[in-house]
C-alpha cells in the first residue's frame, strides 16, 4: 500500500525581492497504485511541487501538509524522505564528478535498504536495469551524469527508479528533451515500475506525448501554483487540442 497525500500545500521561494509564493494551496491524493499526471504551462509551479515534496532546501513550505502512508514527509530530511519511499526523477540531474555510477547506485541502494545488496544479485540487477534502458554496461564506470547526453541522464534516472524501487515516484519532466526512441524506452521503464503492486506515480509534464505511452488515472491542470482543473485521461487529449489558453485567460 502507498498513498501520497498533499493537502493545501503552500510553498515559497526566496528571491532578491524577498519570499515569493509559488504554490498557493495544492491538494492532491495519489492512492495505492495510481498514476497522476500534472500538466501545465511553464512557470506554473509544477517543478516546485516536485522539489518541495523531495525537500529541496531552496523551497520553504509555508502551509499545508504532505504525508506518505500517514507519515509526515515535511518533517523528514531529504534523505529520510527517500528512505521512506519517495523518489524524484529530476529534470536536470546533477553531475557528481569522480563518483562512478556503479558506486553511486550501490551506495544509494545500501542507504535505502539499510544493508548492502548481495553483490552477485546486485551486479545482475544493475546490468539488467542498464540494459533495459539501452545503456551500455560500461556506463557503470562513468562519473554520475558527467558528460551524459540529455537522453542518457533521463534514462539513468529511470534505471535508478527501477533499482531503488520506491513506493511513489515523482517524475519531473522526464520526457522533455527526449527523442521518440528514448521516450519509448523511458516510458517502458516507468510502466514496468507501475506494473508492480501498489506503486504510485506523479508524472509532471509540459507535453501530452508521454501520456500516449503512460496512461494516467487522473490528469491535473496546474496553473499559477494551483490545480485549475482535473479529470481522467481524456483531459490530456483536450489539452492537446486546445492548449492551456483557456486556463491562462481565467487568471
Amino acid at each position: 500500500m502507498s498513498t501520497l497525500q498533499i493537502t493545501d500545500l503552500h510553498v515559497s521561494v526566496d528571491t532578491e525581492d524577498g519570499p515569493k509564493q509559488i504554490l498557493k494551496g495544492v491538494t492532491l491524493t495519489i492512492d495505492d497504485g495510481e498514476t497522476h499526471a500534472i500538466m501545465g504551462p511553464n512557470g506554473s509551479g509544477k517543478s516546485t511541487l516536485a522539489y518541495s515534496i523531495a525537500g529541496h532546501p531552496k523551497y520553504t513550505v509555508t502551509g499545508g501538509s504532505v504525508t506518505l502512508d500517514g507519515e509526515d514527509v515535511l518533517a523528514m530530511s531529504v534523505d529520510e524522505r527517500a528512505r521512506a519511499g519517495l523518489f524524484l526523477a529530476m529534470q536536470y540531474p546533477v553531475e557528481v564528478p569522480g563518483v562512478s555510477v556503479s558506486n553511486f547506485l550501490r551506495t544509494a541502494k545500501t542507504a535505502i535498504d539499510g544493508e548492502a545488496p548481495k553483490l552477485r544479485h546486485w551486479v545482475k540487477d544493475v546490468n539488467k536495469a542498464l540494459q533495459d534502458l539501452n545503456l551500455d554496461p560500461s556506463f557503470g564506470t562513468r562519473s554520475v551524469n558527467e558528460g551524459f547526453s540529455g537522453g542518457e541522464k533521463k534514462r539513468h534516472e529511470i534505471a535508478q527508479l527501477e533499482l531503488l524501487d520506491p513506493k511513489v515516484a515523482i517524475l519531473d519532466e522526464t520526457d522533455s528533451g527526449l527523442d521518440i526512441d528514448a521516450l519509448k524506452v523511458v516510458s517502458d521503464g516507468v510502466n514496468r515500475f507501475r506494473a508492480k503492486e501498489g506503486k504510485g506515480v506523479l508524472l509532471i509534464t509540459h507535453y501530452t506525448r508521454i501520456l500516449r505511452y503512460i496512461t494516467p488515472d487522473r490528469v491535473h491542470v496546474f496553473v499559477d501554483g494551483k490545480i485549475a482543473d482535473q479529470g481522467g485521461p481524456e483531459l490530456a487529449d483536450q489539452l492537446e487540442a486546445e492548449g492551456y489558453d483557456k486556463y491562462l485567460t481565467k487568471v
Binding site: A54, H56, D79, R81, A82, M90, T107, A108, L164
Partner: peptide, 10 residues
Amino acid sequence: FYLRARGIAE
C-alpha cells in the same frame, strides 16, 4: 541534494 534524494545520508 541529488545524492540525498537517493537516500544517502548527508
